[in-house]
């Protein structure tokens, strides 16, 4: 039952730490957080055991472009409490995202890791970047690109006129139909002070 040299090196490789990268562009923040948490724990490996230190590094870029369902940006609220007087605060998701574009992704992954003692060790291996500028010292470790959790939808102004002409006309537009990407709406003016 001896082990060959190749098998021994293979076994070192089994427990080596891998680096994965994933694009958060247009991805649902909850589903992406669950997937990233699974890779941080090492739960995607067949050798996984909660007491085994087999978690991987994950680099998430384009965190600013992450997506939420419906009106969650407005209605989802995060509660912060530092346990000092008057330090309790409820912040909506869009406020946090404006202040720090990586914070919501961090919170989503941290929540998906579950309430246990090792999640502080696991979250240290998460690397978040707001845009697609990643320093080369991070990028040189990456060996695998993770598949996104959903397909990225295209905005209507990203579809070219040639591609639009090739698509069959399923119905006729009304005569007075206003195509918004041809005549975009002017944003409403800033409210002026009322004169007394």
């Amino acid at each position: 039952m001896g082990m060959t040299r190749l098998q021994r090196v293979q076994q070192w490789l089994v427990f080596a730490r891998q680096w994965h990268i994933v694009d958060a562009q247009g991805q649902d923040i909850d589903r992406l957080g669950e997937k990233v948490a699974r890779f941080l724990k090492g739960a995607h490996k067949p050798i996984y055991h909660p007491e085994t230190d087999c978690g991987d590094h994950v680099v998430v870029y384009n965190c600013r472009q992450v997506a939420m369902k419906g009106f969650e940006w407005k209605h989802r609220e995060y509660f912060f409490n530092r346990e000092y007087p008057r330090s309790k605060n409820l912040l909506s998701a869009w406020e946090i995202h404006e202040f720090d574009p990586c914070r919501l992704m961090f919170l989503s992954v941290y929540q998906s890791l579950g309430r246990n003692l090792v999640r502080r060790r696991h979250i240290e291996r998460l690397h978040l970047f707001a845009d697609d500028e990643i320093p080369p010292r991070i990028l040189q470790n990456v060996s695998n690109q993770m598949e996104q959790v959903q397909s990225v939808p295209r905005r209507s102004d990203q579809i070219s006129a040639e591609e639009r002409s090739r698509f069959p006309a399923i119905f006729d537009w009304k005569e007075d139909h206003l195509v918004d990407w041809e005549a975009p709406r002017v944003p409403p003016a800033e409210p002026t002070e009322k004169k007394k």
Partner: peptide, 14 residues
Amino acid sequence: MNSAALPDATFSKH
């Protein structure tokens, strides 16, 4: 992926 420069959009497609 061995010869591609990551990140590459072709590998991340769902």
